[in-house]
Design a protein around this nucleic acid. Structure first.
Lengths: 238, 238
DNA sequence: GTCGATGATCAACGACTTCTCAACATTTCA
DNA sequence: TGAAATGTTGAGAAGTCGTTGATCATCGAC
């Protein structure tokens, strides 16, 4: 898409900055790294960036503040959406990220593997490019795999069109948009049903997954895409 | 790593303070020395230090208290791990266990030779530098070795994907996040099982370590990553 | 070497999770 | 309004996982 892909890494831990920098440079990115929120904001204002990797738990001007300010600025000035991947230190923070829906494009919980970060970065950039690419080219379902188009709300599996009910589609779309993430049922309830797990029964999710599998998996008993993560929930193998 | 290597010596015995100070100054360290726990905490808060040498048997605010507070603060604020070498007057097994459990990086019993202390200091600092240097901490190295990803809850050993049960994964993730630390079984119970050791049997940890080893170690009888620390617990060799 | 303490290994059982299906509730649309 | 499609809930079966205690191996002290 662009000649230079430039990423900003914001983390106050030397080790994380170094490792993330390596991972991105190995992937052909130009990397800027800063260790605090103020420098991060300055860099974002002053530089042309393709992507920001942002630690949530910065001291001082925190990751959440940056995210909030950035998104507020963008919508006020009608600027282009700058893709952001959030890093969070604890698994419990994940729930907050999802709950608050702060506009991160993806998020990773430490510890994470560099390869995983690189994969998510590519995926975020691809989506961002498709979006910027305007009136997305008429969808052509190609070859193998599962293709989901939110605009026409249609789904193809290995090139064949599949009919899904509304909730089934929403669930699948969410999973496909968050590939390789172990999603807990409560997360899916919140995201797809806009509901609290206190309010709604989590077995609703189980049942919809069951129906989805019968429709999209070749061997529903032995699912290839929609995998169970025992004691947690489900994961889409993108 | 740093231009100046600065060490804080905490001991209420004049003779020990003097001897240790000499030993470190001869080794090119800048030395701060205090004779009580309160001053120690103040110095730790106010100064940039490379290492603390801490007498366990201080009167007043004791060595164990300092260790506990310091490590609690670090984990709460996500600060860098400050290396600590503990000095103890007695060779009692109990103190040794408690000292290592609370996150002392090494341990010396009085009387000791200044040369021995200097050697251990160098070793502790080297390990600490390696750790901060990126190849460990929340991040696991690429390629060979064990990679853990909390987001997708998946694990790779030498590039091959490994299936783990829920508790096995949680245990592994905790260990990987605290590399090169002797973790007591009670600590692991508290961290991974959110449980009291009075309530749950510590052999649960032993068993889970056993299962983990059979899944991730090439030679489980002779573990390379998940090592036993006799009379204490287990340690992850990051 | 012997003894005691500690860890490894194994088997067994109970508890928990998910799958599956059926029944009921709700929405949609003719 | 009524029928069909869709969504939600609950219950039982099947399977996996977690935990424990027993027994054997190993280590270190004496």
């Amino acid at each position: 898409m662009q000649g230079v892909r430039r990423v900003l890494v914001v983390d106050d831990d030397d080790g994380v900055r170094t490792a993330v920098t390596w991972a991105f440079e190995a992937d052909g990115f130009e990397v800027l790294a800063v260790d605090n929120g103020l420098s991060a904001m300055e860099t974002i204002d002053g530089e042309v960036l393709s992507l920001v990797v942002l630690d949530l738990s910065l001291s001082g001007l925190g990751g959440l503040d940056i995210l909030r300010r950035l998104r507020a600025n963008e919508s006020r000035n009608g600027q282009r959406h700058l893709p952001i991947i959030v890093l969070s230190g604890r698994d419990s923070e994940t729930d907050r990220i999802i709950g608050l829906d702060l506009g991160a494009d993806d998020y990773l919980v430490k510890p994470f593997s560099p390869g995983e970060l690189a994969a998510r970065a590519r995926s975020v950039l691809r989506r961002s490019a498709e979006q910027a690419g305007g009136a997305s080219a008429p969808f052509t379902p190609v070859g193998n795999g599962v293709e989901v188009d939110r605009t026409s709300r249609s789904v193809w599996v290995d090139g064949r069109s599949i009919e899904l009910a509304a909730k089934e589609f929403d669930l699948l779309a969410y999973l496909v948009e968050h590939p390789r993430r172990a999603c807990r049922r409560s997360e899916l309830l919140a995201a797809v049903w806009s509901s609290d797990s206190d309010w709604q029964n989590e077995s609703t999710v189980t049942e919809h997954v069951y129906r989805l599998r019968t429709k999209i998996e070749t061997d529903p008993q032995n699912p290839k895409w929609l995998r169970t993560v025992r004691a947690v929930g489900y994961r889409w193998e993108g």
